[in-house]
Design a protein around this nucleic acid. Structure first.
Lengths: 198, 198
DNA sequence: TTTTAACTACCTAACGATCGTTAGCCATAA
DNA sequence: TTATGGCTAACGATCGTTAGGTAGTTAAAA
């Protein structure tokens, strides 16, 4: 396989597991099967490797989420939103990509704070906008009554983060427990708030 | 002030901001105003300083939460639960303690994973048990009907994490936005689920 | 078609800086 | 007298990084 790709994938795993400061170029090079200075044939330095990895991961993540949204286009809102959470859990379990993104969104390397946020903000923003849009569309179709689609979207993002962070140390069982306990309450809340306010 | 206390407090701030691997004993010592090797008069090494800091922070956190629960003993369940979230946001904003605990719960140093989890698990467990107990008690009083108190507690913990992680990069405004948007939905959900299942 | 130049992707060796840590000395206080 | 809590000096290890060289490939020039 392409050495640059292997570097990106290996670095991703290391950054996800050890964080930016904890990951070492030596170990990444060892895993790839090259010598440490050879990294500099592909990347200007650790910063560059890290930011390239982050860009790459965000791009792939965005692509996959878009793909999911398309694949369940005809289903009702609840199925789509609940399904997205299940989908994210699967993704998180399958590869280190989501874990990496999550970690860097919450605890970016302090030396690269601005650069990281410049990449993450648009990603999360577009994610939230998409959920708002979904809610508004479902409401326009008359399928569900949602009082404030923006608030509903924010609450959904909050729920998502609460479940995803549990993946980090609770693993898949813990996250599924949270999803199973939270979803009925969340969805009943969405419906109830939609009822009370006309 | 006691040098050991200063070390614990300074270390806490550094570990919260830079993570375990990113924090350096040199800089911590500089901040305290002593030389690096003097740290070893109080702690066996970086591991020991870190774990002591974590124990200290968890103890203080637990004490404050207990204190909060007592202070609002007579209020209705919703006020107590909603108030706890506001209380946590204040705490998080005021000091680095909650940030440190949150960071280490989600992304512990990989070299100290077991030791950290041994400290964090009981903390989170007791927190969850307390919330379960609160829900059951409110139900016994006939104040609120809650279908499954355990699920309600898990959902509450999920909500808490979703709001707290937003504190990290969204800051207080972002977290308050999440709280404001999520709470009405969460609480309406709790009530609605309690209604449907007798 | 052959030669030559440039480029790519790796290497070894080594750089200076910083890391956590230890040894050993010295003052103050119990 | 012993213990505490600082200090200086220095340790070996590891960090990210650079210099400089070498095969293998590509492409233009002879």
């Amino acid at each position: 396989m392409n050495a640059k790709r292997m570097l990106l994938e290996t670095a991703l795993a290391h950054f996800a597991r050890e964080g930016y400061e904890g990951a070492s170029l030596q170990k990444i090079a060892d895993d790839v099967g090259i010598k440490k200075p050879s990294i500099y044939a592909h990347f200007k330095g650790k910063d560059h490797l890290f930011l390239s990895t982050l860009k790459d991961a965000l791009k792939a993540e965005k692509r996959r989420i878009t793909h999911y949204f398309i694949s369940c286009k005809d289903q009702p809102l609840e199925t789509r939103l609940h399904g997205l959470l299940e989908f994210l859990l699967e993704e998180y379990n399958r590869s280190s990509e989501s874990k990496f993104v999550l970690r860097m969104a919450f605890f970016p390397p302090s030396s690269l704070y601005d650069e990281v946020m410049e990449l993450i903000y648009p990603f999360l923003d577009s994610m939230e906008r998409r959920v708002v849009q979904l809610m508004q569309q479902a409401q326009a179709d008359g399928a569900v009554k949602i009082a404030r689609p923006e608030d509903a979207a924010v609450a959904y993002m909050t729920l998502t983060d609460g479940i995803l962070v549990e993946m980090v140390y609770g693993g898949l069982p813990g996250a599924e427990r949270r999803l199973g306990a939270s979803w009925p309450i969340f969805w009943a809340g969405i419906r109830a708030v939609g009822q009370t306010e006309s």
